[in-house]
């Protein structure tokens, strides 16, 4: 099952990733990071297909995506 990792302290809360996730599972977290932004995060990780749209759209290289060896 693909794994998405958000480096929360690089996130500036721009929300671009939330607008491109085909599964709509990327949302802004309630807590705030060290810069005072609400970082993006993934809910329902199991729905993630590993398409990396969120990672591609992120202007701050805050998102990494991993998949099983195909």
């Amino acid at each position: 099952m693909p794994q998405v990792t958000f480096h929360e302290d690089r996130c500036k809360g721009c929300e671009l990733c939330t607008s491109v996730c085909p599964k709509g599972i990327v949302v802004m977290a309630k807590h705030i990071n060290s810069m005072g932004f609400h970082p993006a995060t993934v809910v329902e990780q199991d729905k993630c297909t590993g398409c990396a749209f969120c990672a591609r759209m992120c202007p701050d290289v805050a998102i990494e995506v991993e998949k099983e060896e195909s």
């Binding site: 591609r56 995506v65 991993e66 998949k67 099983e68």
Partner: peptide, 15 residues
């Protein structure tokens, strides 16, 4: 697990 998306080496990593 294999990384399909990560920071390219040609970026220093500085935010």
């Amino acid at each position: 697990m294999v990384k399909v998306f990560e920071r390219p080496k040609s970026l220093t990593g500085k935010p």
